[in-house]
Design a protein around this nucleic acid. Sequence first.
DNA 1: CGCGTTTACGTCGTTCGTAACGATA
DNA 2: TATCGTTACGAACGACGTAAACGCG
Lengths: 354, 354
Amino acid sequence: MKLQQLRYLLAIVDSGLNITAAAGRLYTSQPGVSKQIKLLEEELGVQLFSRKGKSLDRITPAGQEILERASTIMREVQNIAGVAQNHQKEQRGRLSIGTTHTQARYVLPSVIHEFRSRYPNVVLELHQGTSEQIAEMVTGRKIDFAIATDSQHLFDELFLLPCYRWDRSVIVPANHPLANNAQRPTLTQLAAYPLLTYVFSSDGTSSLKQAFEEQDLTPNVVFTARDADVIKTYVRMGLGVGIVASMAEDCEEGGGLVAFDGKGLFPRCTTWIGFQRDTVLRNYIHDFVELFAPHLTTDLTRTAAKASDQEAVDALLEGITLPLRGGISKLSAGAPIAHSRRLRESFQAVDYPG
Amino acid sequence: MKLQQLRYLLAIVDSGLNITAAAGRLYTSQPGVSKQIKLLEEELGVQLFSRKGKSLDRITPAGQEILERASTIMREVQNIAGVAQNHQKEQRGRLSIGTTHTQARYVLPSVIHEFRSRYPNVVLELHQGTSEQIAEMVTGRKIDFAIATDSQHLFDELFLLPCYRWDRSVIVPANHPLANNAQRPTLTQLAAYPLLTYVFSSDGTSSLKQAFEEQDLTPNVVFTARDADVIKTYVRMGLGVGIVASMAEDCEEGGGLVAFDGKGLFPRCTTWIGFQRDTVLRNYIHDFVELFAPHLTTDLTRTAAKASDQEAVDALLEGITLPLRGGISKLSAGAPIAHSRRLRESFQAVDYPG
DNA sequence: CGCGTTTACGTCGTTCGTAACGATA
DNA sequence: TATCGTTACGAACGACGTAAACGCG
């Protein structure tokens, strides 16, 4: 038995039982992969795949069990490499982050600036995408971790560490009727105007929609985007009232928009960071996490990584107060993290793309 | 990184950082081992060992972490082989059992007879030894499992499944003063005679001794052996009164000895079977276990093997009644297993070699 | 006939064992 | 000087890639 054979096995399954595709992904020849699998089957004395003609049809029960164990073996191999890296003096390597637009545009720049000066030899990759795309990237181990907001249901296999909380803001053009309001508009007032906001997650649930519906109102959403800047552009053009993350609003510099704090109008959102379970995180990853969320110390994250389930992770965070983020520079003590214990359950319906 | 390199690493540590010895154990040349370790260090970019001159002095912290992961990798490799074997039609292989004399001599023969007829192609190895020796064999993976009585403190790394309980018997020669007793002797009476019994475990605690001491008596043990047959021989010679497992007494066929049931006189003993955690057990092992202890079904053992600690294992057995064994053929319903929950704790002082 | 797998074969890299060398106590 | 680890080198093995054959839709 060789590590390559196990790697080939995983790649074949990952490629939908297509050996040619697996070979391509492995940057090697197809007959080589084919032969190694055959050798492995011969050595073990069991068929790993059932064949239909010459093609692989499906994986056998034995193959399935072996696949899972092969997977943990390859994970441990990765971990050995990670441990080794962590013991090197000079921290080199790669850090791949998957996140959504709001984080990438408004929150991460300052973190990344500091990170780059600390680790000039770490290549940084920022993958922006939808929650669904990020979920796929991280479970497929294309990225080291995900930063996202709510939508925990997409990240069942990860362990999630809450980083901070934030509210939405309501933005209108300076010449909008609501712009002269002394106080911020109510949901009833907002329901009277066309709304521009983030794309709702594919499963259709949305904490924003729910906030309206709880008051028997139906929001008239005429435009959605993943991108607060795009939304603001169209708000300026007079298409309607924008509802965006407060962090995005804070960036505004006299661009002809008036903003109201949406605190209390809509459910508060929680942004978290999510890792694969059972992986060794390199030192610079711990550092990045702590830069992003100071309460997530290396020790705490390391302990959390060993936790068996999300319950245990949440228990570790019991009593910690999450920052409330209004913008890049404004941090104020915020809501206690108490609700994080049931973070996954209680916020399943909330999938506001952060 | 190659599996061989990890195997070499483990062997070196197992051999006390002696590469030559490791090479011998691996049936390969010493320079080969040396080179592979060097290659591994080069690939990982860390020293696995700190050298004193050319000799290995000790393992580095990085090496220690890597060692542990290498260990789980090799375990999973073994498990893959085991899974593969379990999916073969013809069950071939090897079954290595470590146990003490009483089990090997009085309890296992019938089990092994049946097992051999079911699995003629499985090579059976029975390793007899002291509890300490067995503990070392099973943690070093020289044997598949251990069968022993009490002395749980020696087997911390294993998970233990209780199999049956038994009492001791008092044996005297037919011409002994006690032989004509209508009732069995009391502890006070026994304390008046020289006693012959099993060797006490090395840590000095003994449930037998304790039973006497609780009544402020001091037993006069003049002879100890690991072997009931040896004890009986010397009892026949008139050296004193023997105290052995009832299973051993039941074998007697008019050999000039008189036996009294020791039930109630001494604490009852529990014989268990212990496995390494996180290992896949081959089908025939499950079958052996069920032959030995019918309440330990394959499903139950498999579930127990996944349990994270002994507490969880014991919880699985809650409510099951353990057989009480008086001899090879005599099985009677016995004490409820309730105490098994705290098996490890409450019986730490009991280390009667079964 | 295209797609995908297997078989065949030549090449190259790696591992292994022997032998000689080096260092340490 | 004995023990243990490293270096050097030649032989054997194994993996890989190209090319061709095979089976299936």
